[in-house]
């Protein structure tokens, strides 16, 4: 290996190393989802089997936990993205009193430690005697997802040419038609990205959820509870399942944008 070769490929090598670092844990999780552990812990390789995948819900409680997580993530990401888009529009478009403060407040949940958020939300719910469960989880998830949605959509709106909307109105489109025909299609990629981001953040949130879940068990809480007595390989199955769904959705988004850009 000559020096020139190394120099030419140093970036490649570095990238491979970096990707390995990122992907190795996931690869291990994926591999161990096919393991046939002898004991209760899935830590050493014993043999290959499909049965963890075919019997993914064989562990009592795992199916309802997965369902709850998906349900919460779906509703929370839609609500948070809707709210976040409107907030981003307001923050970028309108000068109003308290805009700077609102900007700051939106940023707060992103920079506050989750454990603080979770604890204070719990205090809040207890003080208002709100029964803990589905609704408190949903409220908490919408709350911390909204910030991510606002930031994502805002980034797109800042570079938005206002003349485009003026041109639409100039050509006879009222405010609503202008939003539908011009604004929305142009910020759609950001909205989609926000949706995916919120879903991914919500589906695997543990810290905040643990505080406000009450008797309900989401998938991360299930894993936490199970891990103290056993780690069935089904946990790996579900984990990889979530991962594959998220990655597929993101790739689909990227491909869609590229295809659009090419056609454009």
């Amino acid at each position: 290996m000559s020096l020139a070769f190394v120099r030419r490929h140093v970036l490649t090598v570095w990238s491979l190393f970096f990707f390995g670092y990122l992907l190795l844990p996931i690869a291990v999780v994926a591999a161990f989802s096919f393991n046939q552990p002898r004991g209760r812990f899935n830590f050493t390789w014993e043999g290959f089997t499909w049965s963890n995948w075919t019997h993914w819900n064989a562990i009592p409680g795992i199916q309802s936990a997965v369902e709850l997580s998906l349900e919460i993530a779906l509703i929370a990401s839609i609500l948070a993205t809707g709210l976040g888009t409107l907030m981003a529009l307001a923050l970028v478009r309108y000068g109003f009193r308290g805009r700077a403060t609102t900007n700051f407040i939106v940023f707060l949940p992103l920079s506050t430690p989750e454990i603080v958020l979770g604890a204070s939300l719990l205090t809040l719910f207890l003080n208002f005697s709100t029964p803990l469960g589905f609704w408190t989880i949903l409220i908490a998830h919408v709350m911390f997802c909204v910030s991510f949605a606002v930031v994502t959509v805002k980034a797109r709106l800042v570079g938005f040419d206002r003349h485009l909307e003026e041109a639409a109105m100039d050509l006879g489109a009222n405010e609503w038609t202008t939003f539908r025909k011009v604004t929305l299609p142009l910020i759609a990629p950001a909205i989609l990205a926000a949706l995916l981001l919120c879903f991914a953040i919500s589906v695997d949130d543990f810290v905040v959820t643990y505080f406000v879940a009450g008797p309900r068990v989401t998938f991360p809480i299930f894993v936490w509870g199970a891990a103290r007595v056993a780690t069935p390989p089904q946990i790996n199955v579900i984990g990889i399942g979530f991962f594959v769904i998220a990655v597929t959705a993101m790739l689909a988004n990227v491909v869609l944008q590229n295809r659009r850009a090419q056609r454009a």
Binding site: A167, A168, D170
Partner: peptide, 27 residues
């Protein structure tokens, strides 16, 4: 603006980037 019988040619042109030329003119 949408109730006035005037049209504007903007300095930046402000063509809709997501629409074809036909759709732009047809808007």
């Amino acid at each position: 603006p949408y109730k006035r019988d005037v049209n504007t040619v903007f300095q930046s042109y402000a063509l809709f980037p997501h629409l074809s030329i036909f759709e732009n003119v047809a808007f």
